[in-house]
Amino acid sequence: MIEAEIAPRPARIGLATVTLRLSDAAGQPVRQARIALEADMSHPGMRPEFGEAREVAAGCYQGRLAFTMAGDWVVLMRVTLPGGQKLERQMEVNGVR
């Protein structure tokens, strides 16, 4: 299971912190995963922002992303589990000011 949140809320132009909590079917934290972050605007033609989330506690990962302009953003989280399995999640961050 992947739980994701972003701070600050409401999101503002500038750096934002993305926090992810990974757990397996038994509810145990998933460690040593690799997580790539990407933020895209809802409008095409804009440069995406990239980042990486690192493990800060057991199963808890944090990374930073820059929202470079106001508007609606979509944050993509690409998770590669220790076994090589890949997961992708998407989080909408609307109304960045």
Partner: peptide
Amino acid sequence: QPMEMRATFMG
């Protein structure tokens, strides 16, 4: 004006 590419209404 600062561009604000939003698809959400009053969000």
